[in-house]
Write a protein that binds this DNA or RNA. Sequence first.
DNA 1: GACCTCATAGAACACGTTTACTGTCCGGAG
DNA 2: CTCCGGACAGTAAACGTGTTCTATGAGGTC
Lengths: 410, 410
Amino acid sequence: MSGGSEDAIGSACGRVAGRVAGPAAQTGDQDGREDHDDRDDQGEVRMPRQGSTANGRRATVVDVARLAGVSTATVSRVMNRNYPVAAATRERVEEAMRELGYVVNAHARALAGVSGRTVGIIISDVVDPFYAYIARGVEREATAGGRLCLVCSTQGDPQRELAFIELMHERRADAVILVGGSVADRGYRTELERRARELDAGGSKLVLCGRPSLGKDAPTVGVEYDNEGGAFAITDHLLTEGHERILYLGGPPGLSTTKERIAGHRRALEQRGLPRDPALVQPGAFSRQFGHRRMTELLRDGPEFTAVFAANDIVAAGAAQALEEAGMRVPQDVSLVGYDDVPVAQELRPRLTTVHIPLEEMGRQAVRVALAGGDEDDWRAPTTGTLRLGTHLVVRDSVAAPRGVRRRRG
Amino acid sequence: MSGGSEDAIGSACGRVAGRVAGPAAQTGDQDGREDHDDRDDQGEVRMPRQGSTANGRRATVVDVARLAGVSTATVSRVMNRNYPVAAATRERVEEAMRELGYVVNAHARALAGVSGRTVGIIISDVVDPFYAYIARGVEREATAGGRLCLVCSTQGDPQRELAFIELMHERRADAVILVGGSVADRGYRTELERRARELDAGGSKLVLCGRPSLGKDAPTVGVEYDNEGGAFAITDHLLTEGHERILYLGGPPGLSTTKERIAGHRRALEQRGLPRDPALVQPGAFSRQFGHRRMTELLRDGPEFTAVFAANDIVAAGAAQALEEAGMRVPQDVSLVGYDDVPVAQELRPRLTTVHIPLEEMGRQAVRVALAGGDEDDWRAPTTGTLRLGTHLVVRDSVAAPRGVRRRRG
DNA sequence: GACCTCATAGAACACGTTTACTGTCCGGAG
DNA sequence: CTCCGGACAGTAAACGTGTTCTATGAGGTC
């Protein structure tokens, strides 16, 4: 992007476009289009089908060519700079394009064999910072490669996810990036695998970002982060501080992300020989509201605990509010940690100890990995493979040694 | 969306696609397809040009038609359900599509005259919740209308903005939505207006969302919020509490958004007959970092003030930290307000008093307004017009009566 | 002057769908 | 029996661009 690129965006081809319209003078020359040998006897002008809702038809290569007095091939070559064109001719063509306000039709171009230069990303919610950061990485990397980014939100509905993949396939996206944990449902998995094969057959890639692989033979690539390891590390941090009864709060129960985080949590417990208490694992949503409501309930009639491991920072924010309302101080009375290291973690008071995930980098890698094999014709490169990024603990102010075992209130 | 729609997404046409490949059994019945009379004598297979990077060519309508023993027209009609097809024929075609894993080519479809069903949104940064909420509204409304959403981030660079508009025009987006304040530069304005005309000439709409109109004759539509009014209201709130020296902090100086907010702020001051002190207006970035740094500097050697009006909630978060580090309590020592009512406002302690903007609703309205005229053929509807949404004050805990005039520390 | 090469430019087809016309078959009305 | 209309299905022409193959003239060499 730092080179003398001709456009403000990635490597988009240089194009020009100009003022709306000069006098539509048809440029007198009675061109040599001699009677299509039929259809002329119809006598009627027969208004051409309108593009969509247009009032004025858009200029095409043919119009430009006519005005510049050249063939369409020459116009195409002027645009793409992939074939020698005399300077004078080039100038005339560019002037004509400006005159007509010509804008190339990306659909026609894509149909003619040039890549559509699009990558799609499917997430649960644009507003959720976890997804937003990944989306930013994807968008930036895509733009750097001269591509546009199609964003879809599923609101967590697997059916919509499948439908969006299909829509992106229809648009011949270079890559489709699926972000976030997935449900374990077998039927869904099968459907997903079928889509992956179809995409692959067409030369596109399905990228699984922060989600377990579909299996060795499914034609997908993956970018993961060390979910289990991060959970292990942060639990271990709590254990080191002396906590023995840790409440795990939030995260949709069926989700792979939840399972992995709980797995890491349990491994840390087991390593210290601590028992696992089912009452201390309270999955739910990934929302602030859930964190607040469930925490309030558990403070009233839940098990004893001295620390809370919230499934993510948003849940932690809700839990923090519940704690505050119950008159509990963090970390003096209860320690609290989150996951994801999203901006809110720095705004909470005390600042939240959490696990950092290289979200934006994951997004970038997702498109890089997807497009790696496609550019060259080396289909020897393994069509499947997984890139794994590290996570690390971020220690802030929300953890302290337990003062004593917490008793249920009231 | 609540009707018995056939797909998980908006009103997308029903399409099918199936398992990769059964035995390619050609379905025995020796149908009456007697030799296409050409192309068979070529004898040679002649590998067609590859689509992009594919190893296996994608199935097309022709393939499906051949396998089902019908014409391509019939296949098209089966897909689009816009023309009667016998049940038996339909079944055969659908089976063929499943067999071949056929996925329609959206580019070809768009080229043939069907709308591409795409809306584009251009924002400064996906991660910024201000933009993220608007993007969510756009995305949801677009999806509800069976459209896909193209998202681009400019990082605040007007050149990239222009380039993105061009890219979306090439893709024949139904609407291009420009979000957020704009710079006052005249050359930029002219460029933008030219793009608007080109877009309009092609039947697309340029929507200005939270940004001033380009003028009466520019073919754009707009969705605004009452920026000036919100600033007036919140300043008046501070004045009512007894504050007389209010620091306005942050917001890029050239930006229309900044100008409007400052205008409202000043109007409130003037209404009470208070003087405007230039030293009390400190524009800058819209970032947390700016809020923190500048607030720190001003506490050291800035003018006296008893309240801070941060240009938005993010800046307020930075300012809050600076205040905290300087040992100042909010609101006892200094009152603090923000703008936008973004989630962080609820996480700050004390919870931030701010101005609520119906961000998601703006996004929804933006696409609604853009697509309103286009669906019907009533081009009598004014091609230009602006929808204005209200803002309102949200009172939380960050404002109190001034204890006394604040003196500079040290 | 004949011949070859190089630099350009044009003609024509491919890309994959949709759709306006044109038929064809069949049942029922006159 | 003929005529008519409805229900289907096929033919072929767009849609706008990229690209391959071919053509033409200029300039140089022998």
